[in-house]
Amino acid sequence: MSRIAQRFADLKKQNRAGFVAFITAGDPNLETSFEILKGLPAAGADVIELGMPFTDPMADGPAIQLGSLRALKAGHTMAKTLDLVRRFRANDRTTPIVLMGYYNPIYSYGGEKFCKDAHEAGVDGLIVVDLPPEEDHELRPYTKAAGLDIIRLSTPTTDAKRLPAVLDGASGFLYYVSITGVTGTKDIDPISVAKALKPLKAATHLPIAVGFGIKSESDAKAVAQTADAAVVGSALVAEISRFVGPDGKLSPGAPEAVLSLVRRLAASAHGARI
C-alpha cells in the first residue's frame, strides 16, 4: 500500500479527517523551509503538499505568488525541492509528500527523469495545476512507472458530464477545489462544499481533500465534517510573509509561528467529528 493510501486508511479507521499542509519549497529560503517541513508531521500534518516554485503561478493568489518568488529569489531550483524531500525522508518514512506546481519546470527537467528522481527522493504524488486530464497523457506513463500518484483536481465548474474524465487515471486522493478562484482568496462556503462532495463521493472511492479557501480553524473544522481531509496553504505561506521585511530580510521565528498555526488548524480538523 502506498504511503498516501495507508495514511487515509489509518484516518478512516480512526474516523477522523486529515489535515494537509501546503508550504512552498525553498520559501523563504532553503534552511527555513526545511525547518518548517520537518516539523509539520509533529504539528499534525497528515499529508504534506510541497509547492514547486514557478515564476508564473497563474492559479495562485498573492500569498503563494509571493512565496514562490521569495524561494526563486533565494536561488531555489527543482533539484533543491527534491533534496528537501530526501532530507525529510531520512527521518520520516510514513508522512506522504505530494509535490504541487506547474508543468513547465517539470517539462524542462524532463518528465521521465523528474518522476524517477521524485520517487527516489521519497515523493508520493504529483499535483500539476495546469496539466488537466486532456494533457497529462504525456506524463502518466512516467508517473505510473515511478509509482507516483497523479492527484486530479475537481472544481465547482467540473460538471457531472466532465467528472468521469477527471477521475479516469486519478489516484492517491481527489483534490476538490472549493471555490471558483485562485488560492487563498475567496471564503469557503461549507454548505455548498458539503453539497458538492456528495456526487464526488458517489463517483469515486478515492479519499477527497478539500482546499483553496480554508483560512481559519472554523473553516478547517467545517470542511472536516464532510471531507476526508482539509488543505491549508495560503494561510501558512502568509504566516511566513509576516517575518519577511520590505527589504526581504527575514526576522527569526517563522518556523515556530507556522508550525503553531498548523497545530491549531490540524487540531480543528482532527477534532471536527468528535
Partner: peptide, 19 residues
C-alpha cells in the same frame, strides 16, 4: 485537441477547462 504538432493544447487549471 488544439495541437499544432507538438505545440498548442489546453494547459489550464481544471476550473477553466469547462469554460
Amino acid at each position: 485537441q488544439g495541437h499544432f504538432g507538438l505545440y498548442g493544447g489546453r494547459y489550464v487549471a481544471e476550473t477553466l477547462m469547462p469554460l
